[in-house]
């Protein structure tokens, strides 16, 4: 690894100040858990390496999980292990726990942060689909203050986000109206443990209890386009439709048309298309299971 300087930030504001100080004159990178950054730099050529690294791993203010006026707020520095252990997240969004659980292995999840995962923005990013399906927003802090945008727009392309070099991702927010919205995340990799997704899918919807129809359905797909995408035709098809296995299967077929999977050494585009249809259907079934469990007295008691 090429030599670089490290400056440690006490908190988010300090980190932004350090970014402002160094970005005009040097190539700067933020380090949180380091599981993406250091792995990237190990065998990178010297020209690719940063001169200064801003270490935010001790910025405790970025490490909170809390329900606020705006919704469920998750700090950028929260690790995947912390997401899995959070009582609030386990209660409201088991899908987020499942998604965190599929990321790397214990050691990587202990270091790797939600913020780092989203900023790296690989198309297969495993935290992406569930959060996109829950209409999550992200808060970004820069020299000019904060700005907020939907996560779906924060992702721009493969390994590209809307973040500017002097900005910090500080918070991920699931809006109040979606708290407890039934959701399900499914990932298909070549192995169960420590494998990147060939396809990952998240589905989420409210159930109109009276009519038993889909309300505000969302289907998000990963690893099948340059960034995490909404399966918009599947979503449009489901809106207001009666909940039934055939509808879920049809949504799966429609989702295939929303994606542009590529062929690579992990899988062919054809195989990925097959996976999209199957996983979308299963994710919809899974989200419906979550809803049903919440309705049963036993489910509520837990």
């Amino acid at each position: 690894m090429k030599a670089f300087e490290v400056v440690a930030a006490r908190d988010a504001r300090h980190a932004v100040a350090l970014l402002a100080e160094h970005t005009p004159t040097a190539k700067v990178k933020v380090i949180a858990g380091g599981t993406d950054l250091l792995a990237d730099l190990k065998f990178a050529s010297a020209s690719h390496a940063p001169d200064v690294v801003v270490d935010i791993s001790r910025a405790e203010d970025l490490r909170t999980i809390a329900v606020t006026g705006g919704g469920l707020s998750i700090g950028a520095l929260v690790t995947h292990t912390e997401i899995m252990a959070s009582p609030a997240i386990r209660e409201m969004f088991p899908a987020l726990v499942d998604a965190a659980h599929t990321i790397g292995a214990v050691q990587t999840r202990n270091l790797g942060t939600l913020g780092g995962n989203l900023v790296t923005a690989v198309p297969s990013v495993d935290s992406g689909p569930t959060l996109v399906a829950l209409d999550a927003q992200v808060t970004v802090l820069g020299p000019g203050g904060e700005r907020r945008m939907p996560l779906a727009e924060f992702f721009v392309g493969p390994r590209r986000t809307a973040l500017k070099p002097d900005e910090l991702l500080v918070e991920i927010l699931i809006p109040t109206e979606n708290l407890g919205k039934p959701a399900c995340f499914l990932k298909f990799g070549l192995r169960k443990g420590q494998a990147l997704a060939l396809v990952n899918v998240a589905a989420s919807f409210w159930v109109d209890a009276k009519t038993q129809t889909f309300r505000a359905p969302r289907v998000a797909l990963g690893a099948v386009a340059p960034k995490v995408i909404h399966a918009t035709s599947a979503e449009a098809y489901l809106e207001g439709r009666a909940i039934a296995p055939e509808a879920m299967a049809e949504a799966g077929r429609l989702a295939v048309g929303d994606a542009k999977p590529i062929s690579d050494f992990r899988a062919s585009a054809e195989y990925r298309k097959h996976l999209i249809a199957v996983l979308t259907r299963r994710a919809l079934e899974g989200a419906y299971d979550v809803w049903q469990k919440k309705q049963s007295p036993a489910g509520r008691a837990r």
């Binding site: 490290v6 380090i31 858990g33 250091l38 790397g104 050691q107 990587t108």
Partner: peptide, 27 residues
């Protein structure tokens, strides 16, 4: 492997297992 895949470098930091190849000494 030096990139977190193999786990041969696993140690515990503050009670949690980590890939010591992916953590800076300063951290």
């Amino acid at each position: 492997c030096d990139v977190g895949d193999c786990g041969a470098c696993t140690v515990m930091v503050d009670g949690k297992s980590v890939n010591s190849c992916l953590m800076l000494a300063g951290q």
